[in-house]
């Protein structure tokens, strides 16, 4: 079926070839110009948080798709103590000053008054030791040991019974300079911790003392240090890096 031929006299062949060449390159040229035009148009559409509108829509759709299939059984692999390495403290937005002397963890459940907690309240929850890979959105990764309480245990204890949990959680540094938005499923994932220990020692300020989030199913940008406020919310929360061109979901 492939070796179909058009057998013609020399003149007819030349004419036929010329016709087909003209038509082929015309269609090809129009298709090429149309594609470049469509691409340039897509790129020129008004930015939505740092990237073209259409790319933002697709990133959000990708996130929704991943979220739909995310399951508590989807875990990041765990390692042995021998694999532990020091973690590069890669950002100090919101923690570029000493820990606030009056630091408290404010929890806003949307039901009843705000809660004001201390590290002891988190330490009273079952302690989890976990050696997992910390993946930076830049591409590097480090195996780190964390000690802390599951955010799901924290939620069971401090979110009032009765009203259902809203679909999102927002976390902020005390100065509100750094903030992350999380979907509830990722926040309640069994590997998501409110951590107070790093590589076997108490958390240091550059790693987010007194309390930080460790969420291995998300890139490092979501692992907020020095949490000041936790808010359970029905509206998708703002996110520091998502406002600067990055994926809001940022899940692994």
């Amino acid at each position: 079926m492939i070796d179909r031929e058009i057998v013609l006299s020399p003149d007819e062949a030349k004419a036929e070839l010329r016709k087909r060449t003209r038509r082929g390159f015309l269609i090809g040229g129009v298709a090429a110009i149309a594609s470049v035009g469509a691409y340039e148009w897509m790129k020129s559409r008004e930015d939505e948080d740092g990237i073209p509108h259409l790319e933002r829509r697709v990133l959000d759709a990708n996130g929704k798709l991943a979220h739909r299939y995310l399951d508590d059984r989807h875990v990041m692999p765990t390692f042995s103590r021998a694999d532990i390495r020091p973690l590069k403290p890669n950002g100090n937005i919101g923690i570029d000053h000493p820990v606030e002397s009056d630091w408290r963890l404010t929890v806003n459940t949307g039901h009843g008054p705000e809660l004001n907690l201390g590290v002891a309240d988190v330490k009273s929850l079952p302690k989890v030791n976990m050696i997992t890979r910390f993946c930076c959105i830049e591409g590097w990764d480090t195996v780190v040991q964390w000690g802390g309480a599951r955010f799901s245990d924290f939620t069971s204890k401090y979110f009032p019974p009765g009203p259902g949990l809203p679909p999102y959680v927002s976390m902020m540094t005390p100065d509100e300079e750094y903030f992350v938005g999380l979907d509830l499923k990722s926040a309640l994932h069994p590997q998501t911790l409110l951590a107070y220990e790093y590589n076997g020692s108490p958390l240091t300020p550059e790693h987010g003392a007194p309390l930080r989030l460790v969420i291995p199913v998300k890139y490092g940008i979501k692992n907020i240090k020095r949490i000041g406020t936790i808010q359970y919310t029905a509206k998708r929360p703002e996110d520091y890096w998502a406002e600067d061109g990055y994926d809001w979901f940022a899940g692994l």
Partner: peptide
């Protein structure tokens, strides 16, 4: 595009053909 055209001169000796 993929039609088969064989001209009446197909039996001549020199035959430039357009091959798909």
């Amino acid at each position: 595009v993929e039609q088969q055209l064989i001209s009446p001169s197909a039996d001549k000796v020199v035959m430039p053909t357009l091959k798909l």
